[in-house]
């Protein structure tokens, strides 16, 4: 069974699309209550890995655990229960574009809580305010900029105050100030609630600020793992070079 403290475990997970192997026998542990930053070049399977954790993708081989639950073997009802404990910010935000930004954030609350309509509205506003979007609450998603959508997506991901927050490239397309604010929000969330964070990012300064631990994915495998210092001294030139870059790409 899982060691104490592991929020998420992947055991020998492999995934291929057609003949293209995206994940190749990946095994890893994400510690509970910590922030884990996943690094890697574009197209190495970082997003695919996150999707496996919420069961949006099924591995060809291997198992995925969230806490005690084996995601890969759960019936639909059990899977839904696990998913309620996880917040997921999609790389492209994936806002529901037929409803307002506020309703996007309220959506998980309406589905999974018994709160009154007023309470839900208040909560949704608070979450939007936390990402600096209070003024865009009644806008339709289509009218937002990429960065605003990202933040709205983050507000939705955090709506249910999940124990686990998966964040796919939160600062891509954001100005440095907003990007810093998002990092602060994520850091404070982890600190105040003990949220387990997995953050995929190309923004090394941001990664340094957030990370308790780092994973470096390359060609479907975990190439390096450890603290920022560990990765800076990695035996792989690619990892060292990645760590020296200043801005995301």
């Amino acid at each position: 069974m899982s060691e104490p403290g592991a929020a998420i475990r992947l055991e020998g997970v492999s995934k291929a699309f057609g003949t293209f192997r995206v994940l190749d026998d990946v095994t890893l542990r994400i510690p509970r209550g910590r922030a884990t930053v996943v690094l890697g070049r574009s197209g190495t399977g970082k997003s695919v890995m996150l999707r496996h954790i919420v069961g949006l993708l099924q591995p060809d081989a291997g198992r995925v655990f969230v806490g005690e639950d084996e995601i890969t073997a759960l019936p639909p009802a059990g899977l839904a229960a696990v998913r309620q404990r996880i917040g997921f910010l999609f790389q492209n935000a994936a806002l529901f574009d037929s409803i307002t930004v506020a309703e996007n954030v309220a959506f998980p609350l309406r589905r999974h809580t018994t709160l009154s309509d007023a309470e839900i509205r208040t909560r949704a506003r608070d979450k939007l305010a936390a990402v600096g979007l209070a003024r865009a609450a009644e806008s339709m998603p289509a009218s937002l900029s990429g960065g605003m959508r990202k933040r709205a997506g983050l507000a939705r991901a955090m709506a249910l105050d999940p124990a686990i927050l998966l964040v796919d490239e939160p600062s891509a397309g954001l100005d440095p100030v907003t990007s810093g604010e998002i990092d602060d929000l994520l850091a404070s969330t982890r600190q105040e609630r003990g949220t387990t964070l997995i953050v995929v990012t190309h923004n090394i300064p941001s990664a340094r600020r957030l990370a308790d631990a780092m994973l470096f994915l390359h060609e479907g495998r975990v190439l390096a793992r450890g603290s920022a210092a560990d990765l800076e001294q990695s035996e792989h030139a690619l990892v060292r070079r990645f760590m020296r870059s200043e801005a995301g790409g």
Partner: peptide, 21 residues
């Protein structure tokens, strides 16, 4: 068109991710 757009912009995955069938 609506479901197609939801599919390609990952809104369907987003629904699943918030535990909606």
């Amino acid at each position: 068109a609506e479901l197609g757009a939801m599919k390609v912009t990952e809104q369907i995955d987003a629904l699943e991710a918030v535990a909606v069938d």
